[in-house]
Design a binder for these strands. Structure first.
Lengths: 115, 115
DNA sequence: GTGCTGCTTAGATATCCGTCTAAGTAGCCC
DNA sequence: GGGCTACTTAGACGGATATCTAAGCAGCAC
């Protein structure tokens, strides 16, 4: 039986996920939100990773676009939180790329709550 | 107890790994080598992912630098293979970023065979 | 309304990436 | 050696990225 690479469309999708974490600041933001397990305002995040506020904002936008984080507006603040679906899905994607069969939940692409 | 983000040095290292897979062609190459489980020549890889030979060569260089793949020279050909250490380590790294504790083998940075 | 606070958007800049074509290098065979 | 085969390196080009400063905008308090 012929074993080729992942098909292009799947590879493109996985690559987009990895790309979202291809920056140290974004890795820090995601790990922070994951470890805290609660929504955090942009200001709080800025205090934890030491780059400017607008830079953090831009990174959060990138992470939102691939649905690694979700956002809630509360008054004048925006609260970002980890997308629980990704906590399981993302490592599974890593497994698939590394040739391990996907265990369950084949439809991984981060769905999630609001916005 | 205060839970901050991963420290910068760790985040930088993980980011480098993800960056190596932040391109669809590289995802295809890695998945191909992982699924085949045997060393493959550059020519074979070129036949499987449809981009030019020099492009594949460049991608293989990137993947070598982070030790996702290892290489053996045999005469005029170069045989690339997946780094078995990464098959387990990389998904573990994904777990860590997603806030899951690293199960075992804390020293993950791809060590490996030759070159 | 005025003014503050919290965040995003715009603009600028310097850097890096993916791909291609073309040229270089190294092993092999007659 | 001459020529082929298999890769890598160099150069170029268009496009994306990370960061900063500055400007905009939307709630809230008074």
């Amino acid at each position: 039986m012929e074993k080729g690479p992942l098909e292009r469309s799947a590879a493109t999708e996985y690559a987009a996920w990895f790309k979202a974490l291809a920056d140290p600041t974004r890795v820090q933001i995601v790990s922070l939100l994951a470890r805290q397990g609660r929504p955090m305002s942009v200001g709080e995040i800025v205090d934890a990773v030491h780059v400017g506020q607008s830079t953090v904002s831009a990174h959060l936008k990138v992470l939102s676009e691939v649905r690694f984080v979700l956002v809630d507006q509360h008054g004048t603040s925006r609260f970002y939180r980890i997308n629980a679906a990704c906590v399981g899905c993302f490592p599974t994607a890593a497994d698939v790329v590394m040739g391990r069969p996907a265990p369950i939940t084949p439809t991984c692409p981060p769905e999630g709550g609001d916005r």
